[in-house]
Amino acid sequence: MGLFKKKIVKKTYEREHMKPVIRASICNGEEVAGFKDIRTGKIEEIMLIRS
């Protein structure tokens, strides 16, 4: 029936100011994909990588 559909949100990023990165934790091996702002150094997390 499809009452609850997964919403797909497309995000764009400024290629001049941001670069794609993967941040990995040393203690538990968790990996997160996102974009790093070159000017400020902040990472905007997009998704968790499970496997």
Score class of each variant (00 low, 15 high):
G2Y: 03
G2P: 02
G2F: 07
G2Q: 10
G2L: 13
G2S: 13
G2W: 03
L3Q: 09
L3S: 11
F4D: 01
F4E: 02
F4G: 01
K5C: 07
K5L: 14
K5G: 12
K6C: 10
K6W: 00
K6I: 03
K7Q: 10
I8Q: 11
I8R: 08
I8H: 11
V9K: 08
V9G: 00
K10Y: 06
K10M: 04
K10T: 14
K10E: 12
K10V: 14
K11S: 01
K11L: 13
K11Q: 09
T12S: 10
T12R: 12
T12L: 07
T12F: 13
Y13Q: 04
Y13A: 03
E14S: 14
E14C: 11
R15G: 08
R15M: 09
R15V: 03
E16G: 01
E16S: 13
H17M: 11
H17A: 12
M18Q: 07
M18I: 01
M18V: 01
K19T: 00
K19N: 04
K19A: 02
P20D: 03
P20M: 04
P20N: 06
P20V: 12
V21R: 04
V21L: 06
V21M: 10
I22H: 01
I22Q: 02
I22P: 09
R23H: 04
R23C: 06
R23A: 10
R23Q: 09
A24C: 11
I26Y: 15
I26M: 11
I26R: 13
I26H: 15
C27W: 01
C27R: 05
C27P: 01
C27N: 12
N28G: 13
G29Y: 02
E30G: 10
E30C: 09
E31W: 00
V32Q: 00
V32I: 14
A33L: 13
A33F: 11
G34C: 10
G34P: 02
G34N: 07
G34A: 06
F35E: 08
F35Y: 15
K36M: 14
K36G: 00
K36I: 04
D37Y: 05
D37N: 14
I38C: 12
I38W: 04
I38S: 13
R39M: 07
R39E: 12
R39V: 10
T40W: 13
T40D: 11
T40L: 13
T40I: 10
G41C: 11
G41M: 07
G41W: 09
K42A: 08
K42S: 09
K42N: 10
K42G: 03
K42I: 12
K42V: 14
I43H: 03
I43A: 07
I43W: 03
I43C: 05
E44Q: 09
E44K: 08
E44D: 08
E44W: 01
E45L: 09
E45D: 11
E45S: 14
I46L: 15
M47I: 05
M47K: 08
M47A: 15
L48K: 03
L48H: 05
L48P: 02
L48Q: 06
I49C: 02
R50K: 13
R50V: 06
S51T: 08
S51R: 15
